[in-house]
Amino acid sequence: MQTKARTLPLSKRGMSFETVMWLFTRLTALAMYGFIFIGIVGAFVMGAQNDMSFVEVLRWALMPNTGHVTYTNVPEISPYASMFWKSVASLFFLTAAGHGVHGVVVILDDYFAKPSQRKWIRFWNISIVAVIIPIGIYVIWMG
């Protein structure tokens, strides 16, 4: 009777692009919760206890970009212009863009089953996100 644990090496698990992207989507979803948590904690640490409403805290958590919060009641927004917060915002943005574009492709695959259609859908989605990412990064770092 075979009793030893059966574990397949990486090369034998069917680790295709589809599988990797399935895993990527799950991990990026978790990562985004982490970024939101970091944003909320950061906002409170930097004065949100006194100067921001909960709505504004959420806004900071989801869009930690000085350009987006100029009109909040926070008297001093320069801490958010630091390398750290710009990096957090950039990583959050890249994670969300990757997660989002793959989600759209997966859903559209339900409606377009022909390989040629799927090829075009992938091409257009990747093209759109390839344009959006540099714009987003530019806004975060130069805004």
Partner: peptide, 17 residues
Amino acid sequence: GAEQRLHVLSETNGTAR
């Protein structure tokens, strides 16, 4: 035959759908 089956499942029309 797990390896063969997992390779089939990892295709576009496999578990990802």
